Computed example of a mutant assay.
Amino acid sequence: MSVYDFKATTMKGQEISLSEFKGKVLLIVNTASKCGFTPQFEGLEKLYTTYKDRGFAVLGFPCNQFAEQDPASNGEIQEFCRLNYGVTFPMFQKGDVRGETAQPLFKYLVKEKGFKGLDMDHPNAQNLLNFIKKNYPDFLKDDSIKWNFTKFLIDRDGNVVERFEPTKTPEAIAPEIEKLL
């Protein structure tokens, strides 16, 4: 099994197979428009424009499961990302990424690469950890996605290579992407 076995619905409502990205290195990210990590859109777009000609793509999946930080419609989310961060990478329709209602793709990603902890060198790491402990303590009991902007790096064969928590910036992931290109 690989990410190519899954389908996703584009912002325009078209269901596509992720096999359309076969042969590319992918960074699959659950996103949110009203999160402290939302400025990562800028770094994700920079990764995309830097490496897309070498066979790389970022795939964004908005989610409203974390403190309702992406309540807008799919169209509004896409417009927000384009206007505020110049996002040109593929974005898919909003859906759940954790729990029973999680999209099958995200259930697979989490199964392949579980939670290994936050990058505590990030300036917001302790605040995020404290917030989750206080408001969502069950989130810390399993390998599920803990917050917005969890990133999964996929090789050209569709295998999940690495998982990066929200506290790992897109810029810090660039060397890992380059190794796979």
Rank of each mutant, 00 (worst) to 15 (best):
L118R: 04
K116F: 13
E176V: 12
E15S: 15
D138S: 09
L105F: 03
L180E: 00
V25T: 03
T10L: 15
G95I: 05
T9N: 12
P137H: 01
E15C: 09
K141G: 08
N148P: 09
W147N: 13
T101R: 15
P90H: 10
F61L: 13
L109N: 01
N159Y: 11
Y48A: 00
V29T: 05
L27R: 01
A174D: 11
D157F: 14
H122L: 05
E165M: 12
L83A: 08
F131C: 11
Q126N: 07
F41R: 11
N127C: 11
I154N: 06
T9G: 15
G95M: 06
P123I: 07
I132C: 02
F149C: 14
K151Q: 10
A67Q: 06
F41K: 14
D142M: 07
K7C: 01
L18A: 11
K94N: 11
G43H: 15
T10E: 06
T88G: 00
V58T: 01
N148L: 08
Y4T: 12
G158R: 03
Y48I: 03
R156F: 03
V161Q: 04
K46N: 04
D157K: 08
K107P: 09
Q65R: 09
E176S: 05
N64V: 13
F164C: 09
F66I: 11
R156M: 06
N74P: 14
G95R: 03
D155S: 10
G13E: 06
T10W: 09
P170C: 11
E79I: 15
F89P: 11
V160G: 00
D157R: 08
D70A: 06
E42R: 13
A8N: 01
L153R: 02
P123N: 05
V161F: 02
P62H: 10
D53P: 00
E68P: 04
K24S: 04
D157T: 07
A174C: 06
I77V: 13
P123L: 06
L128H: 13
L153Q: 02
E20C: 03
T169W: 14
T49W: 00
S33C: 06
A102L: 12
M120W: 13
G75F: 14
E112M: 04
E112W: 02
F92V: 10
S17L: 12
Q65Y: 08
R98C: 15
E79M: 04
E176G: 01
F152Y: 10
D96V: 08
F80C: 03
F61I: 05
W147Y: 13
I177K: 00
L59N: 06
F61D: 08
P104F: 02
L118M: 07
A102S: 05
S33T: 07
C63H: 07
N64E: 06
K24G: 02
G114N: 03
L44M: 09
K107A: 13
S19V: 10
L140E: 13
D121A: 12
K52N: 01
K46T: 04
I154R: 07
G13H: 10
Q78L: 04
T38E: 09
I177V: 08
E68T: 13
F149H: 05
L59T: 11
F41C: 09
Y85N: 09
E45H: 02
E20G: 08
F152T: 02
V97C: 06
N84D: 09
F89G: 05
K151D: 14
T49M: 00
F131A: 15
E15W: 15
K34F: 10
R98V: 13
F6K: 00
T150D: 15
L26A: 09
C35A: 10
F131S: 12
A102P: 14
